[in-house]
Amino acid sequence: MDPILDPDVELMLRVRAGDRSAFEMLIGKYQRPLINLIGRYLGAYDDAEDLAQEVFVRVHRAAPRYQPTAKFSTWLYTIARRLCANHARGGALRRWFSLSRDAADREDDPPDAGLNVADPADDPSVAAEKRQLRRVVAQALAELPDTLRFAVILRRYEELSYEEIAAILGCSVTAAKLRVHRAKAVLAKRLAPYAKDAG
């Protein structure tokens, strides 16, 4: 896709020109996918919102130098991938985030939030099963090697094309396909005991 035709690129060009409302529109559009992308990558949502906010901070700071060379979402997810990788590497950064959260936030977000959500209408045993399945799936994702994990999340949840995934991961399209395939193979093995729940 020609970046010029991407409506989000148009918004970003307005951000570059100092249009605050355009920035707010981009936040409104991408906050949810970003939080979920990051939460799934990290295996927990404790730090996902902080990191997603940090992605937008980087976007805004880069705005004066922004050049539309790719789709906006490709650029955004590339920033997210780098921040996630830094976060995963830095235990110190993780501690820093946990210290920065206030007590009210902690009460709002129980541990493993987002992976534990249950439909109130569910039977308690069914709800417990669903929670268990979510934990297993989150764990299986979290145990994937870094590059496979990001590739499969982008494909499965964001439904990005292999071309976009390749651009975000900085690899060839073939390598992006291979990563998704390998991730699927590993997940199929780990989730095989739960396959009956898939239907």
Binding site: Q31, G39, L115, K130, R134, V137, K184, L191, A195
Partner: peptide, 14 residues
Amino acid sequence: SAWTLLGALEHREP
């Protein structure tokens, strides 16, 4: 099945 099971994760609202 694995692909379908990945859908078990909820969407979190900001």
